[in-house]
Structure formats: C-alpha cells, structure tokens
C-alpha cells in the first residue's frame, strides 16, 4: 500500500471510504473483503471497549471492533445506517470494524497521499492512533487513511501486552 509520497508516476489507488461522525476515512480497497449491514453482536465480557463483539456471517465468526472506541471518540448507539467493514484474511484473521456510514469508492492518485508524519495537525489526526497512516486531500475535504493491519495490531497489543505472534 503506497502511502508515502513516492516519486513513482501516477499510481492510482482505490479507497473504500466511510465516515465516523463527520470525518471521512478511507482504507485501501484491496484490504476489504466485504461490507455488511448491521447485525446482532455478542458482546465479549472483559474485553476492552474497542471490542464491539462477535458476529456470525455465513457460519463464520468475526471479531468486530468499534471504530469510535479506537479513535477515542464517544460511543454512539447503533443505527441502521451503520455498516460492518470486514477485512481480508490476509490482513488479519476474521475481523472487521463498525463504522457510522459507508461512503463511495474513490480513485486517488498516490501522490495525493501524505504520510501522517508530514501532514499538518488536525483535530482528529492529532489523536494518535498508530493505525492512521496518512491523510489525503480530496476535492472538498480531507480523508484520513487507515491501515487495517495496524488496527488489529493495536488491539492485540492492548489486550495481550504484545503484538500478534
């Protein structure tokens, strides 16, 4: 996933975008397996607030993380327009995130993306989550780029005191 300002020529990356509150986020579409509507969770006791719960999708159990909690925003009640963004197995074992609203799939040229270190501080960007890897300037707004793999790593470290083996 090329998030750095590269000197390569016009590499187009497709992002699957979604919103949390009003901020727009994007994740490389190659990381996304599927997007599902909201379905009943089974909460997991003793797990931190980032873990929303477990869901059953076609017989397979997925771990759903709460994006609000990950970004240290206040939790809101679930609404019908919430979606589950499930990531591919190659990124990490059966997990996904709960987002407020899903957005479009957009094409972005790689040079429009700046890595986190280089971008200017912003309210949301400043809340350091190691899984925010950069920002991308779109026509009318800023999209925060997220790395799915890093999300899982973050949760793993938090729960087990070390990164996934």
């Amino acid at each position: 996933m090329a998030l750095e300002k590269t000197t390569e020529n016009q590499e187009i990356i497709q992002f699957c975008t979604f919103r949390l509150r009003s901020q727009l986020f994007g994740v490389n579409i190659l990381e996304v397996k599927e997007i599902d509507r909201l379905m009943p969770f089974t909460p997991v006791h003793h797990a931190p607030s980032e873990v929303k719960g477990l869901v059953n999708i076609r017989g397979q159990i997925y771990l759903i993380l709460d994006l609000s909690a990950l970004l240290e925003e206040e939790a809101q009640e679930v609404k019908p327009e919430n979606r589950l963004l499930i990531f591919k197995e190659s990124i990490g074992e059966s997990f996904g995130i709960l987002v407020d609203r899903i957005g479009d799939v957009i094409d972005v040229a790689s040079k429009q993306i700046t890595t986190y270190a280089e971008s200017s501080s912003d309210k949301i960007v400043a809340k350091a989550g190691s899984f925010k890897t950069g920002v991308c300037q779109l026509k009318d707004e800023l999209m925060v780029v997220i790395s799915a793999a890093k999300i899982l790593e973050f949760v793993h470290t938090k729960m087990n005191g070390h990164a996934a083996v």
Binding site: V44, H46, A47, V51, L54, L63, E93, M159, N160, A164
Partner: peptide, 13 residues
C-alpha cells in the same frame, strides 16, 4: 479470536 486469547474466561465461540 487471536486478539482475544488473553481472556481467560472464554475458550472459544
């Protein structure tokens, strides 16, 4: 799930 391995009360789902 791997991430939840530290929860001793649960052995699976």
């Amino acid at each position: 799930h791997n991430a939840l391995k530290g929860l001793k009360c649960f052995s699976g789902a």
